[in-house]
Design a protein around this nucleic acid. Structure first.
Lengths: 208, 208
DNA sequence: ACCTGAACACCGTTCAAGT
DNA sequence: ACCTGAACACCGTTCAAGT
């Protein structure tokens, strides 16, 4: 006999609604007041489940990383590493408006640690030294994060699409950029991501 | 006979003060009202030089990228590429609180385009195909951006430092992470960044 | 042309009061 | 134990008014 959508509030329910709402409306639209009304409650009620907005955002990162799912083990260390980062990038696609929170709040919890552990493990078993494994792990992580962010927000150095279309791009000054301009819109991001992953792993192969 | 620091306002002066202030006080402290008072003026005066806050932030990215300085040409393409990304990363160190703006506002201007052009040019001259050059450029850019952001805000998957110190990290669950924990604080970021750069370039070498 | 005071519609957050 | 109304100290932004 419960009215639809009126289960009692809980930290978990608040966080999940915050993620759902942000995916739909964007991070800028997420205010305590709007989130409250989304849950059929006044803003102040949220403070019973979350100490403040900053903690709310941390909690959303927790929910995000909780959805990380890496397929079962394979025997090939290279494929295993790739699967890990594919799963990470998948988060960006599933929650494009929440994923960027990772920038401002590296996890205060242990939610991502198991993946770190597993990737390090994989590298150690593949024969890499302790420190080499760490550096390689961080190179791969930096790449995967940077690429996923670029997909969501645009590549940081490249002028954005509308500029590229305009004739503000003079062939005399920017011959290579101009040559690429028509092609840029159609780049297959899945393949491009794999290309970079393969590039780094190829570099590692030389070293193992 | 001008009173110190009371030159007339201009778009440029507003943007530069915004960058200086943000480096000092952080992005959260940057409000139109505080920036105004920093310039000895009321907030509303800023709207004479900048249409709104969003445009102010865009302008700050403009200032940031305007400081990009790549050393004069070398003959070695690999070294040339590295110099480009070192210069990019240097921006993060010089303006750690402004650099993250790149995430939210990929440049609406052409301020970074010359570096893109030059990097692409270097790759083409080194013998890479048009599309291969693009993919490699983006792999390198994603890595460099991801790494620089990680230096500023922390690595996105790794639990943060204070967690690592705590015994919340059980050696049974996270043997590899625990093994690295004491070492993590002392990692030389310059060397680690170079390691990753070299890794990607090594992967490219195989292909050229 | 540039600056300002007053005002508007918003924020996050606190706290005493209700059930 | 959980929710709320009223209030506080802030935001960005508009606009009519001043010089």
């Amino acid at each position: 006999m419960v009215v639809a959508g009126r289960q009692p509030l809980s930290r978990r329910r608040v966080l999940e609604e915050a993620v759902r709402f942000t995916d739909r409306e964007g991070l800028e639209a997420l205010t305590m007041r709007r989130l409250g009304s989304e849950l059929g409650v006044k803003a102040m009620s949220l403070y019973n489940h979350v100490p403040n907005k900053s903690a709310l955002l941390d909690g959303m990162v927790e929910v995000l990383l909780g959805e990380l799912e890496v397929p079962p083990e394979t025997h090939d260390w290279e494929e295993r590493i790739k699967e890990g980062y594919r799963a990470f990038r998948r988060l960006a696609h599933e929650h494009p408006n929440v994923f960027p929170l990772l920038v401002n709040r590296p996890p205060d919890t242990m939610d991502g640690a198991w993946l770190v552990e597993e990737l390090l493990q994989t590298l150690r078993r593949a024969g890499f030294e302790r420190e080499t494994a760490l550096h390689a792990f961080r190179a791969l992580s930096s790449y995967a994060f940077g690429y996923a962010m670029a997909e969501i927000r645009g590549f940081t150095l490249e002028p954005n699409g509308s500029r590229l279309g305009a004739r503000s791009l003079s062939p005399a000054e920017f011959p290579n950029l101009c040559e690429l301009a028509p092609y840029l819109e159609e780049v297959d991001h899945d393949r491009e991501f794999e290309f970079g992953l393969e590039l780094i792993i190829a570099g590692m192969r030389d070293r193992s």
